[in-house]
Nucleic acid binder design. Structure first.
Lengths: 189, 189
DNA sequence: ATATGACCGTAATTGCATTTTAGTCACTTA
DNA sequence: TAAGTGACTAAAATGCAATTACGGTCATAT
């Protein structure tokens, strides 16, 4: 079997299980059943290998977000479903969850960078979907970059941050009512 | 002069200059020109002394936020001015800025707690102002707790977070246009 | 009655020896 | 002879013992 692929799978497994810092190149080589030197014929260094794994993660996330959208549903419904799915992905996806934990506990710089990349990806994903819907005339034209950013940050605040400083989680219904009545409403034509 | 007051001033000075962790009780005693034991006749422990200082900080912040509001101006105008002022206060106020830095660098638990307290204070301050304006009939009744939280988090995202992952800061005008057209608009009767 | 600072146990820090790790490269293998 | 390997190296991380620094107390002083 293709050595590059074996290495990618081994690395994905190890990063998911132990995080970036605690994954060693020897470890990956052993899991992939290749010599350590072989890894360096495909990837420039550890970070390069890591980034390749993260590209896969981003694709999986996009696929999952796409899978919950419904053809013909309103922008609000689909954007909500997509954002909720991506935030769920943060906790569900073993590697993503591990990286968030590592960023909080270890402050590994490579991990911080990668998490920022993923968040930027989420924002541009939302922006992209918004622009499609604007082109269809369902939404008013607007500062899509900023609105997408605001939407993402709002969901992050309500779904993730709220729980950290309050005893009870927010009910999804309460969130929908809030955002439906404020941000989403104002975007309609 | 009143010993309690001397201690408070010395502590404020030291916390502002060196942060929570790097401030020692011996240090405070020396600056205040009292014996260390004297501090403990007024404050149960270091954290208790720290909290007393933070209460002062919160009052200063409220005062500054109140000072930029204009009698008779719209909720949007005043809320914007107040939130901008409080976010400026985060960077301007020596102690507040020091604590944010210490939380980022050192992760001192007492500092984390205190920063959460301050943020909760900001949210309830906004909530309080909102409810007054709703009582006057200028705004629709709504989930004030959540809207205040959303407003605060939105400003934090646009003013503070944006700059961390983008090269350029957001122009205040662009922010006003975004929020005016989305959240604020939807709150009007 | 109030204030003090020497004192105590614990936690943090320092300096150093040891181990681990990313990345290389001379050598092997097919 | 092109592709693959793992012993090797320099640098970084870790573990550890000795030392220092700190929050809080309390017997004594004012």
């Amino acid at each position: 079997m293709d050595r590059r692929q074996e290495i990618l799978e081994a690395a994905a497994k190890s990063f998911s299980l132990f995080g970036y810092k605690a994954t060693t190149m020897d470890q990956v080589a052993k899991i992939a059943n290749v010599g350590k030197g072989t890894i360096y014929t495909f990837f420039a260094n550890k970070e390069d290998l890591f980034n390749a794994i993260v590209v896969k993660l981003i694709n999986e996330m996009r696929a999952e977000a796409d899978s919950v959208a419904v053809e013909g549903a309103s922008f609000e419904k689909n954007a909500h479903a997509r954002l909720m799915q991506m935030l769920k992905f943060r906790e569900t996806h073993q590697l993503y969850a591990k990286l968030i934990d590592e960023e909080k506990e270890l402050r590994t710089p490579a991990v911080k960078e990668v998490l920022e990349t993923i968040e930027k990806e989420i924002v541009s994903y939302i922006k992209e979907k918004m622009e499609k819907v604007i082109a269809k005339g369902e939404l008013k034209p607007c500062d899509t970059e900023l609105v997408a950013y605001l939407l993402f940050k709002s969901y992050l605040a309500l779904i993730v941050d709220w729980g950290k400083t309050h005893d009870d989680e927010l009910a999804e219904k309460r969130i929908v009512e809030l955002l439906s009545g404020t941000i989403f409403k104002s975007l309609l034509v």
